[in-house]
Amino acid sequence: MLSWSSIESGTPADLAAIAEGEGDAGLPHGAEIVAFAEAIGGWDDAALASARARLVGVAGEAFMLDAAAVVANFEMMTRVADGTGARFPADTAAFRTDLDARLDIGGFTSAR
């Protein structure tokens, strides 16, 4: 979805930011968004407060609130997928191979 939307918007994003949790993906405030999502995924409240403040500082509170909502949505979707054994159809395997390698996710337990 990031590849598709960023190409369509004229600024192809660097997926390494998703895989590595570093960099800005070539997007405005990208580094702060990645750090915010990373901190929500952890359980260090001080780190989360710091990442939140950084994002508010560069983009404003309304932006941070919508970013928090997006992350909350994928805290939901990951559990829907992993709780129901969701998998991709076999005919998407060829497309997935390259993407899985770029994101370094092929070794996950959830890879089905």
């Binding site: 993906a25 405030h29 970013a67 969701a86």
Partner: peptide, 27 residues
């Protein structure tokens, strides 16, 4: 290109992609 006027769509997908990666969700 749809968005709410705060995050652009690629910025939304960046946040979504990173939390999914942190959660080790292959899907």
């Amino acid at each position: 290109l749809w968005n709410r006027g705060t995050l652009s769509r690629p910025q939304m997908e960046l946040a979504a992609g990173r939390i999914s990666r942190v959660r080790e969700c292959f899907f």
